[in-house]
Amino acid sequence: MNKIVKLTLVLFAFGAVVALLLGMVNMVTEGRIAALEKEKQDNAMQEVLPSSGYEELEYTGGNPNVLGIYRAGDAGYVVKVVESGSQGSVEMIVGLDKSFAVTGISIIKHSETSGLGAVAASTGADGRAFRNQFIGLTAAGVVKDGGTVQAITGATITSRAVCRGVNDAIAAAKTVG
């Protein structure tokens, strides 16, 4: 009996110390990480649809994957969406012109497999080629599903997630436009 109590207490103590450390590190880093993410999102928005300012619009469409819609002056809309990829959520920024055609996409957060799904977000030539396929589209789908987007080799699930994100973004922008 005593042994069980002792073991419980030791395990509890280890858990408590680690939790405390994690909490402290989180407190120190939380602000910086959020600021860096904000900066990344701003850069991504400039990349997909350059504008002098973005005005956040209220979205009432009810699609939980749509995280935010911004009006980019007269140029069109920028939509932030999240989709589930093959390893976790894929967060992306989709730029749309006034006729709801894609002006560019940028993936800001993901946990896809490096070398396969992660190509979608890569700044290398193959990543750019994949993302540029979406420019001008008003509906996206991979070739396998009858669309026009050439999926990333070995990463059809990730490619599909990006297509869904683009479609969700277009649908969401139509509700506010």
Binding site: V10, L11, F14, V18, L22, T29
Partner: peptide, 28 residues
């Protein structure tokens, strides 16, 4: 570390350690 619960403690220490490294890298 008591012998009977060593694995549980390893898991806690490793997961905590990796998460701390991850957060620090992300921030700095």
């Amino acid at each position: 570390i008591p012998n009977d619960i060593r694995i549980a403690i390893y898991v806690v220490v490793i997961a905590g350690f990796v998460t701390i490294v991850d957060l620090l890298l992300k921030a700095f």
